[in-house]
């Protein structure tokens, strides 16, 4: 369950950053991304997928969240 910092890059894409793992990549897809909730399975640029229970209301970025490996 790494804590992941999610922030927006210059192009407005979401960046998925795990300091301990030296992992920083763009978020390709988010399962639930509605005005009410954000979360579910998240796929990032290197092909790996991560899971978080959907958060409602959606968090404001940047923020640190705890993800699970999906």
């Amino acid at each position: 369950m790494p804590s992941v910092m999610i922030r927006k890059n210059e192009n407005g894409e979401l960046l998925f950053y795990v300091a301990k793992k030296d992992l920083e990549d763009v978020v390709v897809s988010v399962e639930t991304d509605t005005p009410d909730a954000w979360g579910g399975t998240v796929e990032i640029g290197d092909g790996s997928t991560w899971y978080i229970d959907p958060i409602s209301p959606p968090p404001t970025f940047p923020t640190t969240l705890r993800f699970k490996r999906a």
Binding site: R7, Y17, A19, P62, T64
Partner: peptide, 9 residues
């Protein structure tokens, strides 16, 4: 970069 990220958040 660590402290910059923290201050951003």
């Amino acid at each position: 970069n660590y402290i910059s990220r923290h201050m951003e958040e």
